[in-house]
């Protein structure tokens, strides 16, 4: 029972992990992107549509195409949304909160529209591809508890964790990470040091959005088994909350997202609760996010604060 719970928690956590890893990259560069729910939705929708055409073209005979093409399409869609966000906030200097919210409205709507449109066809066939997401590198069947909990997942779960670690290393140990952090902390200084602030913000936003979008695809194709549900908006918002929970560290996002995932599914794993009580238990992830938010704001030291220039636009002429 506990093993099953932990396993599910970890499985779900990949959605949050992709989302918050992406958002951390974006925020480290100084952008507060409230459009993540939209990005995840559109990314997942486009990925699923790609999946649909792949399944129709190849049946289930070409696992590589069934995996690679939808993932690529999702990444690309995410990056395009990121491009839109950066264009509006960096080049057109619009307020980041407003653009983010508008992108969420737009993205969630577009995803819903596309999916509804597809569902008039035989969209359900994408569930057939789900097993490829699930089975690759999945060691289920082994009786070892460790394998059961940690190693019986689909490939994207591992990718999420590896990605978080890689991003953490890039941010803290490489020059590009140092430069990006400088851009998010003090763009004027970064600019004076010869770093192209605009370029860094564009690229980090696009990359971050692409990674977040992958979380959407994972959620639908792996966690939901290929059945489309309109749940990504909520997951997107939680991913943004998770960024604060993890104090802008992707490595901490791994346990953080496990906890969020666990809280999210907790109600289904407690014996003897009614459906009504389940809904109350489901408040937990949100309540915990708020509590963490409050605690970090009261006791937060300098190094757990958000990037200093978060949410602020930077224009060189205003030096």
């Amino acid at each position: 029972m506990i093993a099953a719970f932990l396993k599910s928690a970890i499985r779900l956590s990949a959605t949050f992990l992709f989302g918050s890893t992406g958002e951390i990259i974006i925020e480290k560069g100084g952008h507060l992107n409230l459009g993540i729910p939209g990005v995840m939705s559109v990314g997942a929708a486009c990925g699923c549509i790609a999946e649909f055409y792949m399944v129709r073209a190849f049946g289930t005979s070409a696992p590589f195409m069934l995996l690679a093409i939808p993932i690529l399409v999702t990444l690309l869609t995410g990056a395009l949304m990121g491009l839109l966000f950066s264009f509006l906030t960096v080049t057109l200097r619009a307020n980041q909160n407003v653009v983010g919210l508008a992108m969420t409205t737009f993205g969630v709507g577009l995803a819903g529209y596309l999916i509804t449109k597809m569902q008039s066809q035989n969209f359900i066939i994408i569930t057939r591809a789900s097993k490829f997401y699930l089975n690759l590198f999945n060691l289920a069947g082994n009786d070892n508890w460790f394998v059961k909990i940690f190693l019986s997942h689909g490939i994207l779960v591992y990718i999420a964790i590896i990605l978080a670690i890689v991003v953490q290393i890039i941010l803290s140990k490489t020059r590009v990470g140092l430069n990006l952090r400088a851009v998010g902390e003090n763009p004027a200084t970064a600019d004076a040091a010869g770093i192209n602030v605009t370029k860094y913000r564009y690229v980090s936003t696009c990359v971050g959005c692409a990674i977040s979008a992958l979380g959407g695809l994972f959620c639908i194709m792996d966690y939901m088994g290929g059945n489309w549900e309109y749940i990504l908006e909520g997951y997107g918002w939680l991913s943004i909350a998770l960024v604060i929970f993890t104090m802008w560290r992707p490595a901490l996002a791994i346990p953080g997202s496990f906890i969020f995932g666990g809280l999210y599914i907790l109600s289904s794993y407690i014996d003897g609760v009614t459906f009504a009580q389940m809904e109350i238990i489901n408040i937990l992830p949100y309540a915990v996010a708020i509590v963490v938010l409050i605690i970090t704001s009261i006791f937060g030291k300098k190094n757990v604060q958000p990037p200093a220039a978060l949410g602020l636009s930077y224009f060189r002429e205003e030096r």
Partner: peptide, 12 residues
């Protein structure tokens, strides 16, 4: 959902 898309586009 088309209504939502169009509102989003209008906002943008």
């Amino acid at each position: 959902f088309f209504a939502e898309v169009s509102t989003g586009v209008a906002f943008l």
